[in-house]
């Protein structure tokens, strides 16, 4: 039996290694005659299928809603509520206010859940009804890892999955969070909130810096996303960069030694390691205090490909003259 399984496994593995396993992305072009016909057929097909699926779905939905509203007729007792938020700032009072919770009414679980999820700070919500009538609500909250620049609408924060939200409660503790600049906001497909595109990489970057390179992280003030892609597919491009402006440069632009750090969006770990080691072993100070030093520098990370057999990541300090930012 297991030999047969092995055999099957092997066949599968071989198939996955064959050229057919590589994904193909067949795009229908518009200017061939057959292409146009293909498109029309596709549209017709999609439409008919959508109609079919829509019909079935609406049928099921009707049944479901009927079921749900049917249940609420039963109990008229006031409902007890148990609200759980894992270490977040939002509490039960907020919950009641936000969802306009009425104890005496029969709770519609879906309505509650949807209302909860309509708040940008809520990442996930679970609404359960215990058999004895208690309503249990578990909520996961988004925590900010960065903030956007203050504009008229106050301080807005960015969570690790990219969603942007405002919060007065967090506004008090905003100092530890880096500011994001030159952000092109997009609408998150799943939740409909404003979000920062391709946040995952950025979140990774900020987290790595904050946990492993604390000292470097504490010097940073602003992160500019002007060279950062706004599309997931562009992340692997070599010129997707994260540029960080340290505190000193923001406060005192004329006198700061380092104006900017430019990291690669994909290889920032190596860059951070380079920077940290340069700081640690004294070469950094040596360069900055050398007699031939420039008034200010921008730190750049590139891949050195001079010797094609040995590529390595290199940090370069580009001297800037005082008036040239």
């Amino acid at each position: 039996m297991s030999r047969k399984q092995n055999h099957q496994n092997l066949i599968e593995q071989m198939h996955s290694k064959e050229w057919r396993a590589l994904p193909q992305n067949v795009v229908l072009s518009g200017d061939t005659k057959s292409g146009k016909r293909q498109r029309v057929y596709e549209i017709l097909r999609k439409f008919s299928v959508a109609l079919l699926v829509g019909g079935i779905a609406s049928l099921l939905a009707y049944v479901w809603i009927d079921m749900m509203s049917g249940l609420s007729d039963e109990e008229k007792n006031p409902v007890a509520v148990h609200f759980e938020n894992n270490g977040g700032l939002l509490d039960e009072a907020w919950f009641r206010a936000w969802t306009e919770f009425d104890e005496n009414e029969a709770p519609n679980l879906h309505h509650l859940r949807n209302r909860l999820l309509a708040h940008p700070q809520i990442y996930a919500a679970r609404v359960l009804r215990h058999p004895d009538g208690m309503l249990r609500i578990d909520v996961l909250e988004r925590k900010p890892i960065a903030r956007l620049e203050d504009d008229d609408s106050g301080v807005r924060f960015v969570a690790a999955d990219g969603v942007v939200f405002s919060s007065d409660a967090w506004a008090v503790r905003q100092s530890g969070l880096p500011i994001l600049r030159d952000v092109r906001l997009a609408i998150d497909a799943k939740t409909g909130f404003d979000c920062v595109p391709v946040m995952a990489k950025l979140a990774d970057f900020i987290e790595t810096a904050r946990t492993s390179y604390r000292k470097l992280f504490e010097e940073w003030d602003t992160i500019s996303l002007r060279d950062f892609p706004s599309d997931e597919r562009d992340i692997a491009r070599p010129w997707s960069l994260i540029s960080v402006v340290p505190f000193a440069a923001v406060q005192n632009p004329g006198h700061a030694k380092i104006r900017e750090y430019v990291f690669s969006a994909t290889r920032f770990r190596e860059d951070l390691k380079l920077l940290a080691s340069a700081r640690a072993n004294g070469t950094w100070d040596m360069v900055l205090s050398a007699p031939t030093r420039a008034p200010a520098y921008r730190v750049l990370f590139i891949t050195n490909r001079k010797n094609p057999m040995k590529e390595f990541r290199e940090m370069r300090l580009i001297p800037l003259s005082a008036e040239n930012p």
Partner: peptide
């Protein structure tokens, strides 16, 4: 690994990968 290079004329576009 760590190379600190102060090159003012290396900072043109040719350096980025």
């Amino acid at each position: 690994g760590g190379v600190l290079v102060l090159n003012s004329d290396d900072a043109d576009g040719n350096d980025f990968d």
